[in-house]
Amino acid sequence: MDRIEENTEHIQRFFDEIWSAGNMETVDELCDPQFQFILAFAHLDGREAFKNLVRNNRRIFENLTYKTTPDDIVTTDLKGAAFWNMSTTKHSDTWRNVPASNNPVAIKGMTFFRFNEDGKFTEARVQNDVISMMKQINGIKMLYDS
């Protein structure tokens, strides 16, 4: 397996094993200790902070699932990008300042990755459809009312 195939496989595992299955050993295997996870509204510094986010989101969103396929992934030696579809059957606790809506949610997004020379993730930068998420969990109404 060459580096590009390996990077593609690691991105697939990032979504399948970490986000969809909650496997924290995969975080340790694939991510550099100084891994940076960057969203439009937050910047998580380090592998442990990322693990906490995954645990929290998997608690708040029941049956959280991220789907991507090799066709949705573009990689080079040190970079990668993947399109994904996220779904959850129930938003069951407060996310940001929006209380449980008990609604199912489905959004699309894209994540840009950077790899170090050893093939570990050093950075994941997420561009997701937060406005659609907010609409689906009644968050826009909540924000207007706050």
Binding site: F41, A42, K108, Q127, I131, L143, Y144
Partner: peptide, 22 residues
């Protein structure tokens, strides 16, 4: 295909107040 931070745009416009962090 494109993904755009529309919520961030609306927050800058003052249409939606910025919520607390993740």
């Amino acid at each position: 295909w494109a993904n755009v931070d529309e919520l961030g745009l609306l927050q800058q416009l003052g249409v939606v107040p910025p919520p607390p962090g993740a």
